[in-house]
Structure formats: C-alpha cells, structure tokens
Write a protein that binds this DNA or RNA. Structure first.
Lengths: 188, 188
DNA sequence: ACCTGAACACCGTTCAAGT
DNA sequence: ACCTGAACACCGTTCAAGT
C-alpha cells in the first residue's frame, strides 16, 4: 500500500518526539512507515526538504498574535512560539536550521512582522525586527532543549526551569521595550 | 613526532575555514596532522570536546567592549562578536552548538554581561540580558553564513550583504534601546 | 606515552531492476 | 507510479595490540 509525503512527515515527527533529531535518519523513518530508506527519495528530493516539512508541521500549531496594544501582542506571539517549540523535542534546532537555509513554507515570523507593521513600522524594518525577535526565541529555546537532552542522558542534574523562564521574559522585555522606543524615535 | 591538543585544534580550524563544518570529520583532522582518526581520542574525550576548543580559539579574537556610555559599548561588543564569527566559516553554528551544551571555556558573552553590570544591572539579569543579545547575534550570523554556503554551492544567486547589515543594526538597536529603557524603569 | 589496524554500528544518497 | 536491493562513500567511537 503506497505511502505518501503526509505519512512520512508524520512518522518523522513521531521519531523526533520520541528519539530526537540525532536519531532521525532516513532508514529509521523508512522502518516507521514500512518502506526502504531509498523509497523516501521518490517522495522527497532529499532529507533537508523532508525536514523542512516537519518544521512546517510543527509551526502550524502557532496561534495568531493576540489583538491589543503592541507590546502585549508581540510578547504573546513570542511566548506562543516558545511553547510550540517546547512541544517537540529538538524543535528549535530543526526550525532554526530550516529557517537558515530558507526552506519551509511558513517562516515562523510572518505574523510577528504584521504586528510590527500594525504598530507603524515599514515592511522591510518590520521584517527585520520580527526576525531579530525570532532569533532570540530560537536561540533561547535551543538552549533549553539542549539542556533537556543532557538531562535525559544524565550528564546534567538540576532542572533549572525557573531560570529559563526568567531569562526568556527578560530578553523578551528588552525587545518589546526597544521596539516601542525605536518606533517613537522615528515617528515624532 | 607526537601531536598534541594545540596542533589538532589548529588543524581543525583550518579545515573549518577551508571546507566548512560538514567536512570537519575526525578522519579528516587526523589526515591533516598525519595521524589516524583513532589517535585523536587519546587527546580528546570526543568530537564535541574538540569542537569546544575550536570554538574557544575562534572567540579568543574577541576584543574588550569599547569604554563609554552603555549603548555604544554594548553595540561595539556585538559588532565585534559578529565580525569575529564572520571571520571563520560556519563559526556561528559551531559556537551556538558549543554554547548550548555548556562546553567552551569562554562563553562568548562574559564581557557583555559586565557591560550590563556597569550600567547598574544586577548580575543575574546582566547575564540574562547578555545572553539574549548573544542569541540574536548568533542567530543572525548563522543565517548569514548559511546563505554564504548556499552561494558557494551555487543554489543561491544574489549576495544581499547590505540587507544583512541593516537587519543586524536594527536588531541591535532594538536590544540597546530596550536595555536603556528597562534600566530606567527599574532605577527611578 | 602515544599511535595503528581493524572493527562496530551506523549515515545520506543513487540507481538499476522489479511490479 | 511506487518500491527494493545493493552499492558508494562516508561517519564517530572503541579497543586490542604495537612501539
């Protein structure tokens, strides 16, 4: 019975969640869907393309930024992205890699750019500001998830989750306050 | 003639510069220093440890942040980190990975934390703010260097360097203005 | 103390051949 | 149209054995 892109991506996401990015090999994905690794190359040009669709699948859980004033809207978007990423093992690393190569249907930060535009930013700067925010979120979550992996293997001991929350909120406030200040400098 | 950690790290850095992170294998490093790959495991516990020292070697070129008012000092630090990273192929990815696992003698952001402290931030928040800035710089340069790799392979066409500069400066101003604003909120 | 040879258990990818 | 078998050219790491 023929397999297709959808079930391959779903199987890959399952392996990612259970075993992590390091164990996400073409052979293992093939096993999961009952097919040789070589067969996957009939459905996808290469592994990177497949991973880009896994990245898209993860990001499809993103919500729209909350309506309201700028700061709350941007912060809400960033917190949502963080929690979406924390929902899948190694998701930050996967999404960051996909973003870097420019694959992936949805960039993670399309709606963030719109938040900046609604606050009066010109599209090119809105894009850049949204991307800067995304870099912070991805970097922060990547660090959290790497720590989670080390915990799993047992090389690390303490959970230190509260610390990560504080770091995230502080970095986010830096960006939010900065955006509010910069906008005012440009508009008055 | 016996090889040692220093020459192995230097050889690894040379391979990184010339061929990139993907080609930085233990076998290739061994070839470069005239020794079997297995021999490297007498000098280093594993590849990750070796890469951490390569990361340190790269970051050793970092300058002290310029003296002066806070914004210029932080911006100067960030621009220096960016240019140090741009000096070695795939350096952002390598440094980010090393930072995430917590290896590496020097975090990239020790002196940035001191800039925040000099501006009146308490050490834990100074650390977090410096790390947030680092995430932005690493994410931005990672994107630049991935694009450079795609250019090399020929899958991408335009250089678009000016765009990257503008994006870096805008993200940096977001963080600088945010830090200045947050500090004032806390102190008055 | 330092290094080799050989192996173990893998990789991504290609491609002729099968149905 | 979809899949297999087999190969190519690699990986990181371990470990007995050599000098």
């Amino acid at each position: 019975m023929a397999v297709n892109r959808e079930v391959i991506v779903a199987a890959a996401l399952g392996i990612l969640d259970e075993f992590g990015l390091a164990d996400l090999s073409m052979r293992r994905i093939g096993d999961a869907v009952g097919v040789q690794a070589a067969t996957i190359y009939w459905h996808f040009a290469n592994k990177q393309t497949l991973l880009a669709e896994v990245s898209d699948a993860i990001l499809s859980a993103q919500a729209e930024p909350p309506k309201g004033e700028f700061g709350g809207s941007l912060a809400g978007w960033a917190r949502d992205l963080r929690s979406v990423l924390l929902g899948h093992r190694d998701a930050a690393e996967l999404v960051a890699a996909t973003l870097a190569v420019g694959l992936g249907e949805r960039g993670p930060d399309g709606s963030a750019a719109r938040v900046f535009e609604s606050a009066g930013w010109l599209p090119p700067d809105a894009q850049r500001a949204a991307r800067a925010t995304t870099h912070f979120v991805l970097g922060h979550v990547m660090q959290e998830q790497t720590r989670q992996n080390l915990l799993r293997v047992g090389v690390l001991a303490a959970p230190v989750e509260a610390l990560d929350d504080a770091g995230f909120e502080l970095g986010l406030q830096l960006l939010v306050k900065g955006a509010e200040t910069l906008r005012n400098l440009h508009n008055y």
